[in-house]
Design a protein around this nucleic acid. Structure first.
Length: 680
DNA sequence: TTGCGATCCATTTTT
DNA sequence: TGGATCGCAA
């Protein structure tokens, strides 16, 4: 084991860093990229970097810490809070690219005209395209309106042409091809997409909307095209520290390029953990970091502090079997431990039961905490069965990557009323709100909108609304909410009170528990000054998307997460669900070329490397057995098909009460159910 | 024009 | 499981 030197920061805490980490954290050149394998102390290095900078006189307010997902941004923030004490009144900012840029837009109205815009989330965007499809460009092709939004977003994020974006989406299977040859399809679809996107852009400008991509685009473009503005903004910062650098996409690079001159960039990333290609990230760009970023250097962290060697052996093997050369062989600083376990199941119900019983054992037999258990799934949906069992067993848990409250229908219904009152030109909110009521469909809605939308203020809109032949309660609701629009929680109360009957009718028996969510929303709203602040803040950071169930102790509960939200997480016991044929790689990706398959591999790699002590890999027994006799692509590509026996142990769980809650048919032969699966 | 019922559908990942 | 979508009746 190597000697760990100790550095002392003037903040008064001693911190142990190894030689590589120390070199990175105390870098004194201009820009640095730290290539750091999983578990090699990425976050720690970023935090020590921040400490080092502050200790050497940097102003905390002029340091920005960025990450790609909220999850990992929050992770850094909380670890900073527990390890750095900064002189009073100053705080280190840790945020996502989006929330940082939105802050820049809002705080610099003299530069960004969009400072008072409302942010559209994905659903709003799709609704806008749908609305425009009916109004403006009609249905000239059968392309789904959601696909237009995706193509547009992809083009913006990757900075590619419209044709390329259409091509990419056809290739990914998101867009149905209109002709046998892709080129022909692009040629047919392009004019239609162009028209649709053009009217969407106009629409946003007219209604003072911006979407997710605009947030980055406005800042990136604004700084690039306006030297004065660029000077003003970029000189506000000295250091930008970026986590998960492999997930940044070309748009984000372009944004950062504005800061190359004035600021120091400190980027940390791992190409083997790049899993956001679908959002335009290209892990290869970090390979050309020194070419893209002037005055930059690269260094590496290779010693893993998280896992046992057995867990790393399996993870290393996964990368080695790739045709790509990841050049990553992690060595465990901790040494030897238990072999990873493969657990074959017949039904997903058995899978869930086994996970729960192992969690219980970890508490009762190993004396570990709930929080030492991390359950991972490829899809948010896949966690639901586990969640149900945890509730049943009264085990506290926290769930990451689930749907945020703001996305659920009943919340959107009520928030729509607030949005109308805050901005009477918010057509999307009007459309949603009006169509909730009986008797109002798309046509009547449009008729009302024509009267109500193009007035000077909300009072005029309400007057216009009064003259429409509609239920009185529609007007009353808006009127009441408008009366108290400066007090958000009161406004929410009023909206809820007036819509009570309506919503109870719409949601039927679900209304009982859906209602409870409004208390949470009200609490969140108290932190915002205005309604549009509330909507914008909450879209960028739905603080309560992660809810703790079964108790209220943040620090001790089982963690459920999608793999995409799991970066930065770790736990003694890690359970990876449904690592079955057709899932790794996902069958939807197998026809999209090597790039897509490799992304799937990295996804599994991220999951494997979360485990510290014990790694459990669950999978559908029959899918695996069948794969040995099948020659279909899905089977042949299955990552664990040729897993060497020495890398893991294997057990098969039988299912006495087979049939209940399972989606398999009944044609099952149990004769081999207790047979250990034979590798190779 | 709206709204209901039947039918079919598939269920990636995030800001 | 619920969801979205489609056709038909009021």
């Amino acid at each position: 084991m190597e000697e760990l030197p100790i550095i002392t920061t003037s903040l008064g805490r001693d911190t142990t860093l190894n030689e590589q980490q120390l070199k990175a954290a105390t870098f004194t050149g201009k820009h640095l990229l730290v290539l750091a394998g999983a578990g090699t102390g990425k976050t720690k290095t970023i935090i020590e970097r921040a400490k080092f900078l502050i200790a050497n006189g940097a102003d905390p307010e002029r340091i920005v810490i960025l990450s790609f997902t909220r999850k990992s941004a929050n992770e850094i923030i909380s670890r900073i809070k527990s390890s750095i004490t900064i002189p009073i009144g100053k705080e280190l900012i840790g945020q996502t690219f989006h929330s940082w840029c939105m802050g820049l837009i809002k705080n610099n109205p003299q530069i960004f005209a969009q400072h008072d815009c409302l942010i559209l989330d994905e659903e709003d965007r799709n609704n806008a395209f749908k609305l425009l499809a009916d109004k403006d460009f009609k249905k000239k092709t059968s392309a789904p309106t959601t696909a237009i939004g995706e193509v547009y977003s992809y083009a913006i994020n990757t900075r590619c042409s419209l044709s390329e974006a259409i091509g990419a989406k056809i290739f990914e299977g998101e867009l149905p091809p209109f002709a046998p040859q892709t080129l022909k399809s692009i040629e047919i679809m392009r004019p239609f997409f162009q028209e649709a996107i053009k009217s969407y852009i106009t629409y946003k400008a007219e209604h003072r909307y911006i979407d997710y991509d605009d947030i980055l685009n406005i800042v990136a473009k604004g700084l690039k095209s306006n030297e004065q503005a660029s000077e003003f903004i970029t000189s506000q910062f000295d250091h930008i520290l970026i986590d998960e650098m492999q997930d940044t996409n070309p748009l984000q690079y372009e944004l950062l390029a504005n800061f190359f001159d004035k600021c120091h960039l400190f980027c940390v990333g791992d190409d083997a953990q790049s899993i956001y290609a679908f959002r335009g990230a290209d892990f290869k760009t970090i390979h050309s970091f020194t070419k893209l970023v002037p005055d930059s250097e690269v260094c590496k962290l290779t010693l893993n502090y998280r896992s046992t060697q057995e867990i790393l052996d399996l993870s290393n093997w996964l990368l080695e079997t790739s045709s790509l050369d990841y050049n990553k062989k992690l060595t465990a600083n901790r040494g030897k431990g238990a072999k990873p376990q493969i657990i074959n199941w017949y039904t997903d119900n058995d899978e869930a039961n086994d996970v729960i019983s192992k969690i219980k054992k970890s508490i009762t037999e190993e004396g570990e905490d709930y929080s030492d258990n991390l359950v991972l799934s490829r899809s948010a949906w896949g966690l639901r069965r586990i969640e149900a069992k945890l509730i049943e067993s009264k085990i506290p848990y926290i769930i990451f990557g689930g749907m945020s409250l703001m996305k659920s229908k009943h919340i959107r219904d009520v928030v729509a009323v607030l949005r109308i009152v805050a901005n009477h030109r918010d057509e999307l909110a009007w459309t949603r709100f009006l169509q909730l009521w009986k008797g109002i469909g798309p046509v009547s809605c449009q008729r009302i909108l024509n009267k109500v939308l193009f007035t000077d203020n909300i009072t005029q809109s309400l007057d216009a609304l009064k003259s429409c032949k509609i239920q009185e309660e529609i007007y009353k609701t808006l009127y009441a909410v408008n009366e108290c629009k400066d007090d958000i929680s009161k406004a929410l109360d009023k909206a809820l009170k007036h819509m009570q009957t309506l919503l109870a009718d719409i949601y039927g028996k679900e209304w009982d528990y859906r209602q409870k969510d409004f208390a949470i929303i009200k609490e969140v709203a108290q932190n915002s000054k205005t309604i549009s602040d509330f909507v914008n803040d909450y879209i960028l950071d739905p603080k309560l998307e992660t809810t703790i169930k079964n108790n209220n102790d943040y620090s001790n509960c089982v963690v459920l997460s999608t793999i995409h939200s799991a970066k930065g997480l770790e736990a003694k016991n890690c359970y990876i669900l449904n690592v079955s044929v057709g899932n790794y790689p996902n069958s939807r990706s197998i026809n999209n070329g090597d790039g897509a398959i490799e992304e799937e591999r990295r996804c599994l790699y991220v999951a494997l490397t979360r485990a510290k002590d014990r790694l459990y890999i669950y999978r559908d027994f029959r899918s695996v057995k069948a794969a040995y006799n099948n020659y279909d692509l899905e089977s042949q590509l299955y990552f664990l098909l040729d897993l060497p026996k020495k890398l893991a142990t294997s057990t098969t769980i039988t299912s006495p009460q087979f049939g209940r809650g399972s989606y398999f048919d009944a044609k099952v032969d149990f004769s081999d159910s207790d047979m250990d699966f034979d590798f190779n």
